[in-house]
Design a protein around this nucleic acid. Sequence first.
DNA 1: GTGAAAGCGCTAACAC
DNA 2: GTGTTAGCGCTTTCAC
Lengths: 344, 344
Amino acid sequence: MPRANIFDVAKLAGVSIKTVSRVVNHEPNVRASTKERVDQAIAELSYRPDQSARNLASHRSHLIGLVYDDPAAYELPTSGYIIKMQQGALTACRSAFSELLIHPCNYRTKDVAAQLTSLIEETRPAGIILAAPLSNMPKIVRAIDATGTPFVRLSPGKPDEKRFSIGTNDRESSAEMTRYLASLGHKRIAFITGHASHKAVANRFLGYQDGLQQSGLKFSERLVVAGDNSIESGEACAEKLLTRKQPPTAIFAANDDMAAGVIRVAHRMGVDVPEQLSVAGFDDIALARMIHPALTTVRQPLTEMAQRAAEALIEGKCGDASERAPETVPATLQIRESTGPAAR
Amino acid sequence: MPRANIFDVAKLAGVSIKTVSRVVNHEPNVRASTKERVDQAIAELSYRPDQSARNLASHRSHLIGLVYDDPAAYELPTSGYIIKMQQGALTACRSAFSELLIHPCNYRTKDVAAQLTSLIEETRPAGIILAAPLSNMPKIVRAIDATGTPFVRLSPGKPDEKRFSIGTNDRESSAEMTRYLASLGHKRIAFITGHASHKAVANRFLGYQDGLQQSGLKFSERLVVAGDNSIESGEACAEKLLTRKQPPTAIFAANDDMAAGVIRVAHRMGVDVPEQLSVAGFDDIALARMIHPALTTVRQPLTEMAQRAAEALIEGKCGDASERAPETVPATLQIRESTGPAAR
DNA sequence: GTGAAAGCGCTAACAC
DNA sequence: GTGTTAGCGCTTTCAC
């Protein structure tokens, strides 16, 4: 027996297919008793609308696209943040019978924009979640905008007025972490910056400077080294920092992967963490609790952010006319084992 | 200007829409010169076939569904293997202009099978990749089978004759790892078993026993503790093992997450790895290289497996009639820092 | 409130 | 080799 279609339901319920369509799409103008009959017929035939047909007729699917920077473009996949986003988006999708399409893409290739346009035109997603750092690249944002597909930008670094975005308080929470480190008695707190193209991560550096100032510590260029978000860059930076005559007593890395690299190097060099060196990260990916000592970090609410993003898309609140204010989901400090009082 | 459709292309090329369709779908029976004209028209109009329409007419989409056990159902997402699979599947999709749908699902809920059936009927994927341990659950396999959708099972534990599957040599490679540990002089090699529902992981336990025997070591129940694939279970098992009067000198865990847990406990207890204790895992997820000491493990070629699976699906080689032999992608030892000669 | 009819853009079956 | 003609199962428009 083939699947029931809208005609079967209409016949069984004694109504027209349009009425069935109305019921299925929760449109108004259906008498309660009619709706009931239709619902019953739907249940009886275990009818499920065919998505392809819906898409074709409505020019829209029930797919949510999650677009992010392709970790495969790097040697070591720094994938913790991807899982967090997926989980959030999936939670929202599940409760709305939508499905999640994942689409990593490499912004370093010339035709990313064209690729995204194709993706959208071919799959007609109900919406796109655009992750950082893609979300702060005008070329990419414009390409998606041009298709007219609702989308939300995750952590764009700087929200703009016209497009909906969800971010976290990178700067404030980084300042808070810095103050926490200072409160532990640390005077020489080093910072490892993240990938240059990632604006939100750059805000963490600003927050570090804020925190220093708020703690009465003065900022020094010498305590800042440039990483690129990868664990290897974290290791390289740590080596640079820890082989100085006057090494820092605390290192704050702009993300967890780099902080994990710092801890690896400390182990190798026989530097005890946190007795001789405090280490802090940012993101709170699963890795943070899997290494030893467990990493003190700032919990970026990426799961919640992605969930909110998907929900907004599903609710249709990201359309053209929507002048929605950017949302901010606050980050929170996670004090664990890798930080402690400064050594005397 | 709206997007070009098949009629526009047909008109510009001076052919019928059917011919355009043939060209687009690489069907035979098109004269080369005709194909060329059509291709040119396609390029000129930057025509891209509408997937919804294709799906509706052909009852099949260009989506590949990746179905796996939902890590969100656990406390700590053990997500390394998910990323590896996604990456492999994505590689194959990318070169075939297909997209990847991810669908974690919890096999502990009663209606998983019905959920999967809905997913398939609604999205009409070109194929499904079913990851372990779902791939060894008859209820789930049957549900997908019933929809007639091509699918491939990843690491089903035991391949069956009728359905295509891709696995690795869990048993042989585990034996190899065990022999390697024995060759280092270890006599008391403990084993932490994995989640009971995961058949392929159970094969690793068999391999451990093989390896012991091949090395002239005798198997002892006392050296086996039961984990559930999570890092916490690895920690719990390590505590049990290391607080004995006669602790093992090497611990082989059935997966990397548990091995990471062992290393965490060793750090906490002040046990040097690998000087006092060798630790080995299985999977080679990114985590293996992010902890200290870097984990000696068996590299499960999950990325390649998933890629092959997606390719097979895209090539349409997993249909009903296909009596394809199961494929095996061999695993390989990755010797790193967490293993060394047995202490005297 | 409800329904009839006209597509959406493509593939499939068959004719030529 | 190539074209014609029906659908695929729904949404949309507009009439009632």
